[in-house]
Nucleic acid binder design. Structure first.
Lengths: 171, 171
DNA sequence: TTCGTCATGTAATGGGTTACATGATTAC
DNA sequence: GTAATCATGTAACCCATTACATGACGAA
C-alpha cells in the first residue's frame, strides 16, 4: 500500500495518543527500501494528471524480518508503545510468542503496581489530595489492564489446539 | 529541595510510564535558575566529607510564574502528559481553572471516542481479531477516564462554596 | 569487598514533530 | 470560489534518553 493510505490505517488502529506524522513515515519507508525490506512500484491512478502513488510491497527479506521482529518476546516488547504494536499483529505470530508477550506485559504492569503500592502507605498522609486521587486512578487503570491481560492469557491457553476468539470479539 | 530528592518525588507521583532522568532534570534546574525562577543554596549535610546538596527554592518571580502556568487552561493543558502534571498541582489552583481543565480534558477524550467509534462499524469487518480487541479495550479505558472526570467535575461543582474531598479520597 | 544509594553534572546521540514546499482534485 | 482531501517529500528544530564521569557512604 502507499504511504498516505498506510498512515490512515495506522492512525485508525493505533492513533489513540499521537498520529503518525509524514516526517517520520516517509523517511522510514525510504530506510526500509534501502534495507531491502520493501519494494516500490509507481502506480498511475485513475485520472492521468494526478500525482502517481508509490505502492510498497514487502520483499521476501522484508517478510523474514517481520517474522523475526514479531518473534522477539523480550523486555522491549512489553513496554507501553511497543506492546500495542506487537498486539495489533498477533495474528501473524505463534501462540507461544503471544503468550510470552502477554505474560511479560502483565509482569511489567504488576511490577509498577507493587512499586507504587509499596510506598503508598508511606506517602499518603503527606500527599496532596489531588495527587493521591491521581495515583488511585492510575492504579485502577493498571489493575484493569492486568485483568484484561489475564483473560487474554486464559483464552490463549484454552485454545492450545484450535485457534480461539479473544473475549470481547463478536462471535 | 535538591535535585535528587525532587526526582524521587516526581517519579513517585507521576512515574507511571517513564522516570525523570538526570539528563533532563539538572539542565532544567539550571535553566530555571538563569530565568530567575529559583535560587540555589549549598547545604552541607551531616557528615562533613559528603558532597554538599544544592537546595533550590522558588523566588517571588518563580512563584508568580508557577501561578501563571497553573492558570493556563488552554488545549495544551488537556493533552495526556500535561494533564497529569496539571492535575497533580490542582490544590494550588482556583476551582474555576480546575473545572476548565477537567472539562477540556473530557472533551478531548470524547473527541477521540467519536473518531474511533465513527469508523468502527466501517472497519470492524475487515479488521483483524486482535486489532479489533485492542481497539475495544482502548475505547473502554477512555470511557472509564471520561466517567472519572465526570465525577470529579460534579464534585468540584458541588463544592462551589466549601472545598470538597474528591471521590475516592479517604474521609 | 562489593554493591546499592546518595548526589551532581555533561555530551552525544537519536528520534520525532513542526513547518515548509508543491500541486491536483473533489465537495460544499 | 474555497476549503478539505489526496499525495509525497525535506529541513530545522526541539527535547529527552543514554552513557559517561566522579566520589563518598552504608550495608551485606
Amino acid at each position: 500500500m502507499h504511504g498516505y493510505e498506510l498512515r490512515k490505517r495506522l492512525n485508525l488502529m493505533l492513533g489513540w495518543r499521537s498520529l503518525l506524522s509524514y516526517g517520520s513515515l516517509y523517511p522510514a519507508l525510504k530506510k526500509m527500501l534501502r534495507a531491502g525490506w520493501i519494494e516500490e512500484h509507481t502506480v498511475l491512478s485513475g485520472a492521468t494528471s494526478r500525482r502517481p502513488r508509490i505502492v510498497y510491497e514487502p520483499t521476501d527479506a522484508g517478510r523474514a524480518e517481520f517474522v523475526r521482529l514479531m518473534s522477539e518476546a523480550g523486555p522491549s516488547a512489553w513496554e507501553d508503545d511497543n506492546f500495542d504494536i506487537r498486539f495489533a499483529f498477533f495474528s501473524s505470530t505463534d501462540m507461544e510468542i503471544r503468550l510470552r508477550v502477554l505474560e511479560g506485559r502483565r509482569m511489567r504492569l504488576q511490577e509498577r503496581l507493587e512499586r507504587v503500592q509499596g510506598q503508598l502507605s508511606l506517602t499518603q498522609k503527606e500527599m496532596d489530595r489531588y495527587a493521591a486521587e491521581l495515583q488511585r486512578h492510575g492504579v485502577e487503570q493498571v489493575e484493569r489492564e492486568v485483568h484484561w491481560l489475564s483473560e487474554l492469557i486464559q483464552a490463549e491457553r484454552a485454545g492450545t489446539t484450535a485457534p480461539q476468539q479473544p473475549p470481547g470479539a463478536k462471535a
